[in-house]
């Protein structure tokens, strides 16, 4: 449903220039471009600082670097062991995907295609999770993880992430499966396919757009998590990227700005690369998942 709408937006964007509104349009365009430049400047300016030594930076912060000094990258990489952080965060993000998507797809399918009193009640029971803020359950979650010896492990981090994500993605899968034509499944059933094979062989492949959205957004969500990681992880070597960034903030501060800039560039890079590749899908999915009337 939102595909057509988004396609319209995209098409509109790439239309040839036609100044229909004259002066106001020129002014608005200039203003919008200026605001956009201001908005991304915090991501650009670090590049101006990062190739300088602290000394050069202190005297000529805004000048073009005299020579390209790469050690800031090496320093910040070593200071927070970014390699370890990348591996941990990748494990957590992939773990979150593997544990969020299948339960959500299965449940969403049932809620879309098998409507009974019982599934209706089950649906509302799952939606409870949609309204509970993670903050509310932090204390018992932590206590339980300690009791089960799940705390300070990477799976102890992505399992609750999955639990918090499943209600939302169930909702998305449900509305996606509802939008698929019913006769397809009907035809498969007449051909003798069972419930399970109808789902796995016909319906799930058709839900690929929803699955791609979920892959992207669950990955980004898990990658970006700060609160749960802060509560549940305690050993340095298991810290995720975001915890390392936060501890870099605490330990090194902004006194050595070029190194700080290097840390910012390295740690923002994965998200930005992913965004450059998938921004259309990400925006489309975010709009599709936002509450409506």
């Amino acid at each position: 449903m939102s595909d057509a709408r988004n396609a319209a937006i995209v098409r509109r964007g790439s239309r040839a220039v036609r100044i229909r509104h004259g002066g106001p349009e020129v002014l608005a365009t200039v203003l919008l471009v200026a605001i956009a430049i201001a908005v991304i400047s915090p991501l650009i300016i670090p590049f101006l600082f990062v190739f300088k030594t602290q000394l050069e930076f202190a005297y000529h912060p805004w000048a073009w670097p005299r020579q390209f000094y790469w050690n800031n990258f090496v320093d910040s990489w070593k200071a927070v062991r970014i390699d370890q952080g990348l591996v941990n965060t990748l494990i957590v993000s992939l773990g979150a995907i593997v544990t969020t998507l299948p339960p959500a797809a299965l449940a969403g399918y049932v809620f879309a295609r098998y409507r009974t009193k019982a599934t209706e009640i089950a649906f509302y029971a799952i939606m409870v999770g949609y309204f509970v803020p993670a903050q509310m359950v932090l204390i018992p979650l932590y206590k339980m993880e300690v009791a089960l010896k799940l705390n300070d492990t990477l799976y102890g981090l992505f399992l609750p992430m999955a639990a918090f994500g499943i209600p939302f993605w169930t909702l998305i899968y449900r509305s996606f499966f509802k939008s698929l034509p019913g006769d397809l499944a009907e035809a498969a059933r007449i051909d003798g396919a069972g419930h399970a094979s109808t789902f796995f062989r016909i319906m799930l492949p058709l839900a690929q757009p929803a699955t791609i959205l979920a892959l992207l957004l669950v990955f980004i969500g898990a990658w970006s998590d700060y609160l749960l990681s802060l509560i549940l992880l305690s050993s340095q070597q298991r810290f995720t990227m975001q915890l390392r960034v936060a501890s870099f903030l605490g330990a090194y501060g902004t006194d050595r700005m070029p190194r700080y800039a290097a840390a910012a560039i390295i740690s923002a890079a994965p998200t930005i690369i992913l965004y450059v590749i998938g921004h259309k899908k990400i925006i489309q999915g975010t709009i599709a998942g936002a509450p409506r009337e």
Partner: peptide, 30 residues
Amino acid sequence: YANRFTGGLRAVFYLSNVLPSAITAMLGRF
């Protein structure tokens, strides 16, 4: 005022929303 220049800006304006909060905080301190 959708035209060639403003067409790609939606993605620019949304970019900072996708950044992890730790990076946002880092840039804020920056």
